[in-house]
Design a protein around this nucleic acid. Structure first.
Lengths: 135, 135
DNA sequence: TGCTATTTGATAATGATTATCATTATCTTT
DNA sequence: AAAGATAATGATAATCATTATCAAATAGCA
C-alpha cells in the first residue's frame, strides 16, 4: 500500500528528492506533523530542505491527495493519508494528539447538519483537556 | 442580564471607552466577530480604536470571562458570553456561521474521552460545507 | 543528450497578532 | 476638585507562520 502511494503521482507532479523525503517521513508513522516539526526532523536526518519548500511541498502533496491535513488549534497539521477518518483529542499540557473515531457521533453530525439544510463537506472535532499522563 | 454584565467587572480591570465599545458591539447580537470585523464595525460608528487595542481588549475581556472565544478555521472569533454552549456549522462559500447544539453528541464525546482516560476541558466541533443558500 | 517546464533555496513580502514606549486616562483617596 | 498610582491607549516595531519572488537547479521526456 505504501509502495503504491510512492509510485502513483498525479500528472505533471514531479517526484523530487525533497518531496520524497517529506512523504517518507509522514508515511513513516501515524504521527501528526506541522511544517516546523517536519523541517526539524528532516534536518536531524541530514536532509536540509528550505522552509519555503517544506510549506510548498506539504501544500502540493495535500492537493494531490497524497497526505492529509487537519487544523488543530490554529495551526495546520499533516498526517498520512491512509488512515481511516478520525478526530482528535489534544492534551493541553504536553501537546500529545490522540485519535478517536465514534460512529454515533459521525451519524449525529450528519443528522443535525441535515436538519439545518446544511450540505456537509467535512468536519473538525477536537476535544482538548489533559491526557492520562498529565493528570 | 446584559446590564449586569456591563456593571460587573473583575478587580483592577478598568472600563475604558474602548473596552465598553467592544463589549457593547459584541453583546449587541449573536454574531461571531474576529478582530478585523470588530475594528471595521466600530470605525463605521466613528469609533476609531487602534488595532492593537482591539486585540488587547478582546484578550482581556476573554480572560475576564466577559466574552467567549472560539477558534473557527485557523482564526479566533469572539461572541457574547451569555449563549449556552454550542458548536458551529460554517459555510465554505459565504462564510456564514450557524450554531447548533446536540445533547447526544455532547454525551458521546464525554464517553469516548473517558474511555481514553482523557480529562476534558473543552471541545471544538465545526462542521463545514455549504449552507442552504449557497447550495 | 538536449530541452522544457517544474522546482528549489534564499530572501523578501504578507498578514495576523503581540511587544514596546511615551502619553493618556481610570479610579481611588484626600 | 486635585493628586497619585497604575492601567490602558495608539502608533509603530517586532514576531511568527506562511507565501511570493526570482535566478539557478533539476526532473522527466523525447
Amino acid at each position: 500500500m505504501i509502495i503504491i502511494i510512492f509510485i502513483i503521482r498525479p500528472m505533471s507532479l514531479r517526484m523530487t528528492p525533497q518531496r520524497h523525503a517529506v512523504l517518507t517521513l509522514i508515511n513513516g508513522s501515524a504521527r501528526h506533523w506541522d511544517a516546523e516539526a517536519i523541517s526539524r526532523a528532516l534536518q536531524k536526518n541530514d536532509q536540509r530542505i528550505g522552509i519555503a519548500t517544506i510549506y510548498r511541498t506539504l501544500s502540493v502533496l495535500e492537493e494531490a491527495g497524497l497526505i492529509a491535513a487537519v487544523v488543530i488549534g490554529q495551526r495546520k497539521h499533516y498526517e498520512r493519508i491512509d488512515k481511516p477518518h478520525h478526530d482528535h483529542m489534544v492534551c493541553e499540557a504536553c501537546g500529545r494528539i490522540e485519535e478517536f473515531f465514534h460512529q454515533d457521533i459521525e451519524t449525529l453530525q450528519h443528522d443535525i447538519a441535515k436538519r439545518h439544510g446544511f450540505c456537509i463537506q467535512g468536519h473538525s472535532l477536537v476535544i482538548f483537556g489533559l491526557c492520562r499522563q498529565c493528570q
